[in-house]
Design a protein around this nucleic acid. Structure first.
Lengths: 255, 255
DNA sequence: CGTGACATTGACGTTGGTCAACTACCGTGG
DNA sequence: CCACGGTAGTTGACCAACGTCAATGTCACG
């Protein structure tokens, strides 16, 4: 039952045709010139702290489809996304997949207290990230309360975001879920300075469906319906124009 | 559609008939004798830190059904549950409800960076909690890295727990959800030293349904089916005997 | 062009939600 | 002690929404 069985190619499948010129700013090896720095946790640090952080930092470059880590891998590192998009997901034994989140530039992921990751991470698009040994990062954090506090606040924000997702999955209709998804994505883009119209969908229909607890067919049909109603336009499958965001907002919260 | 419309009595409704002798240890006004201290975030503190924390701490006592705070209330405080059980939930405009979590002794809640709570909190049973002004708590945390780190780790654990719930809501069948719920509850009880057999259900069917994204009817029918299959016993509606935890575990992860 | 992955569309059926009745339980008051 | 009332829980009948299965369309790249 449900969906998403046998739908997971051996990773590193087809690169998606999306233009990511403006998707997360480039990083040039040094933290000083990193475009994500005003967003990421490193923003909390002074020069000394930044230096300490840079000393333990590793550069990670990923192509679309690349696996960062798998469910069950040793959780020794924490990642900070600089550009691109990462999907985090869990699998059930029979192959059903739940995407628990999409990571956008400036967000960190991989934070767990256990010694193994309880989920997997893959690049949705070409991406760049900083990798920090958890131990080392925590040492720096212990010496820089501002960083520690920043990490804490970002974790709290993540909890808040996930509560919204739990409401969505537990009680919203397919329409409401999809509308919420589009509007939330647009908001997140706005926060990181990415143009929100046309709205770029780095992830494919399968990712969206597995994120929203639906099937690709339901996502597809809903888009088609809205296109026919004039609420949206779909110049390409990875690009959406929100023609009537207000009506979508009503659908998202609906009575 | 869905469920849980008009199902929310004006709060402080009927007290639930559950024996909570063993449910969370009593606190006697001073942190030194608090039974939750080895579990809660205060465990990370030395005597000086504990003193500083005690200085800003307020005692909260709640009867079953009492509201702690509502969605939209000013989020000036953070709570640490000492005994009892709290439900956190969000409502949609038409009354659909999603319980985002049940708080057990030793866990903290109310952590948000925004200035308003994005969810409500009510006591499921008679409960006791510590209330700390967020500002004050963060000041203490800045001076005690061990506390700060502890708060961070507890937040990370919460994120991990919520990812499991997201998988449950997005991809598990009703059977799987309910089995997962029972087993997870038993595990959490074990952690805090509460007897797991018979398994006490402080919350009613409506709470369970709203937590699992189901209806009361589905929860009820599933219990009945399992009872007839000999997997569980229901001496009273708030008490469950897990006769075949292994089979339940299979149902929980199912193929 | 040809190929393969992704997306869309259609037909169909099952599952779990809806609605409604009934039962069990417990506390209260006569 | 029993009758009553109210709430929570259970059970049954019904049905529509969304998932399943399958075919077709589209697009990008070689």
């Amino acid at each position: 039952m449900h969906t998403s069985k046998d739908r997971h190619p051996p990773a590193a499948a087809g690169t998606r045709r999306v233009n990511y010129r403006y998707f997360g700013v480039e990083q040039s090896g040094t933290c000083g010139k990193c475009g994500a720095r005003t967003l990421a946790f490193c923003a909390a640090l002074d020069d000394l702290g930044l230096e300490r952080l840079a000393a333990i930092r590793h550069d990670v470059r990923l192509d679309a489809g690349d696996e960062l880590f798998d469910d069950g891998d040793a959780a020794s590192d924490i990642y900070n996304l600089v550009s691109g998009c990462i999907r985090l997901f869990k699998l059930l034994p029979d192959g059903r997949r739940q995407v628990t989140g999409f990571v956008l530039p400036g967000e960190y992921f991989g934070m767990v207290t256990a010694d193994r990751f309880p989920y997997a991470a893959e690049a949705v698009t070409e991406s760049r990230a900083c990798r920090f040994p958890r131990r080392g990062l925590e040492d720096v954090a212990d010496r820089h309360p501002a960083l520690q506090r920043r990490l804490l606040h970002m974790a709290w924000d993540e909890v808040t975001r996930m509560q919204g997702q739990i409401l969505l999955l537990g009680r919203k209709t397919p329409q409401e879920r999809i509308a919420t998804f589009l509007l939330t994505l647009a908001q997140r883009y706005a926060r990181i300075g990415v143009a929100a119209s046309p709205l770029l969908l780095p992830m494919n229909r399968g990712d969206i469906a597995d994120y929203l607890g639906l099937t690709v067919e339901t996502v597809s049909r809903t888009f088609t319906r809205w296109r026919k109603m004039g609420l949206i336009e779909l110049p390409r499958s990875s690009e959406i124009l929100l023609r009537a965001p207000d009506e979508l907002a009503e659908l998202a919260d609906a009575s």
